[in-house]
Design a protein around this nucleic acid. Structure first.
Length: 272
DNA sequence: AGACGTACCTGACCGC
DNA sequence: TGCGGTCAGGTACGTC
């Protein structure tokens, strides 16, 4: 499900409703998602107030007053929503009951997501965070940053922009959409891009991600914000999931190929 | 090192 | 109606 814009959408929708709220209790319905859920989750979180909700890459981070962070990754199919004491649904794995009647519910059918607890001052050294590249929506992500990291690389540019050790948050949807916008062929080797092309790519990534956040993310099947609302950026896709349909610019048929086991969509006329 | 493939898991969809 | 195959937004790890 979620790439950077979807996680950011969840963060924006949850923040005003959970910051300052105390976690009254935790209900846990299984021991593990992709990885084990820490046994000390309850003892660390209960009776703690949530001070902030931030995002790093595709991780949601709930900071507690005791200097611990709850780390949540939604994998491919996770939802993290604020509900009012509804009945427990299939694939609800973890419920944070807040003071009052609201509950934060983690629901994840495929269980590719995971949850961890990290002491605040250790987060950058944690194994999930230590090797992460920079955030694409910061000023530091620019041609000067990216150019030397592409140099000499034979890997296809599509795979490279999905490499979280270089730049985080660009998943399979937004990789295809960004390359289309930059008019760069997804199979092109990263090291062969000119400085001009790298500049266009940087601009395209920022533009696609920002527009997706404004649209509340992309709902392909089941994405919803923290308030349960669908996104609508999927209506603005130019190429993703549109094999055989017409390129909006040149009317050629959009093609689908497979790279590193993932579908890539592009226009071979516009993206040379 | 880098380029792959595989594993993790459920559900939706398609053709037969 | 059911069965088998394919595909799906992500990440870590193993192997050449």
């Amino acid at each position: 499900m979620p790439e950077l814009p979807e996680i950011e959408t969840i963060r924006l929708s949850l923040a005003p409703n959970i910051i300052g709220k105390k976690i009254a209790s935790i209900s846990q319905f299984r021991d593990n998602l992709r990885y084990s859920i820490p046994k000390e989750l309850g003892s660390i979180c209960v009776n703690q107030t949530i001070l902030s909700v931030t995002r790093r890459a595709k991780y949601l981070i709930l900071s507690l007053e005791n200097n611990y962070n709850i780390i949540i990754h939604l994998g491919m199919s996770g939802r993290f929503t604020l509900n009012k004491n509804l009945a427990i649904k299939k694939h609800d794995h973890l419920i944070f009951s807040l003071e009052g009647e609201n509950q934060l519910v983690l629901n994840d059918p495929r269980r590719f997501g995971f949850v961890d607890i990290i002491a605040k001052n250790h987060i950058d050294h944690h194994k999930y965070f230590a090797r992460l590249g920079i955030e694409p929506l910061t000023e530091k992500f620019d041609t000067a940053y990216l150019m030397p990291r592409l140099a000499q690389k034979k890997v296809a540019i599509k795979n490279l922009i999905m490499d979280s050790s270089i730049v985080v948050g660009v998943g399979n949807i937004y990789a295809s959409e960004s390359l289309y916008l930059a008019k760069i062929h997804p199979l092109k080797s990263a090291g062969s891009l000119t400085e001009y092309e790298v500049g266009k790519l940087v601009t395209a990534i920022k533009s696609v991600l920002n527009r997706a956040i404004i649209a509340g993310g992309s709902t392909l099947k089941d994405f919803v914000s923290g308030n349960g609302e669908s996104g609508y950026f999927q209506n603005q896709f130019n190429v993703y999931s549109k094999a055989g349909e017409m390129c909006p610019a040149c009317l050629s048929a959009i093609e689908r190929i497979v790279q590193a086991g993932r579908s890539t969509f592009f226009c071979s006329t516009c993206q040379e």
